[in-house]
Design a protein around this nucleic acid. Structure first.
Length: 153
DNA sequence: AAGAAAATAT
DNA sequence: TATATTTTCT
């Protein structure tokens, strides 16, 4: 009684179906330097005082705890966030996005858009992409074991 | 805008 | 210390 899952895993489907109200600015975008003060996207910075926030994530265990000092609002645009914590889930989304895009479009910009993760910026994806590529390259040469002796330690 | 490398924080 | 993430430079 399984549903039709041809080439996408449930997790992937969820990851791609979940939350996508992102204003995509593909090509140039300039006539909007300083937008008013609205709340375009809500980031993951909700101090859990005593309420049930709407966390659209309900699959594996993973809590993205971000930020401790609440700046006041949700500056999801042009604001220095503390540090992006690439949680396993985020990484999965990243990998899935890359896999679905293909090396052809596996560029930070496209990946970022495919992920549809608010608060994520091109730099974040690009930086991680570098690490991801390095990781792949590492395992490409030798998948298991290793040279045998570690000349370090 | 993408990639790589260096710098820094954890 | 090693690793992860950011920032800078190309």
């Amino acid at each position: 009684m399984p549903i039709t899952q041809t080439l996408i895993t449930p997790d992937l489907a969820l990851a791609f179906d979940i939350r996508t109200p992102n204003n995509n600015n593909t090509t140039s975008n300039s006539p909007t330097p300083q937008p008013p003060n609205s709340l375009p996207t809500l980031s993951q910075s909700v101090p859990p005082p005593s309420s049930a926030p709407s966390q659209p994530f309900s699959s594996d265990l993973d809590s993205a705890e971000l930020g401790s000092g609440a700046p006041g609002d949700e500056p999801a645009r042009t604001l220095k966030r503390p540090r992006l914590v690439w949680t396993p889930q985020l990484h999965k989304r990243f990998v899935d996005a890359v896999a679905h895009l293909g090396i052809k479009n596996a560029v930070p910009k496209t990946i970022m858009q495919l992920m549809s993760v608010d608060g994520l910026t091109r730099e974040n994806v690009g930086s991680h992409l570098q690490k991801y590529r390095l990781y792949l390259k590492r395992m490409q040469g030798l998948s298991s074991g290793g040279g045998g002796v570690r000349l370090r330690h």
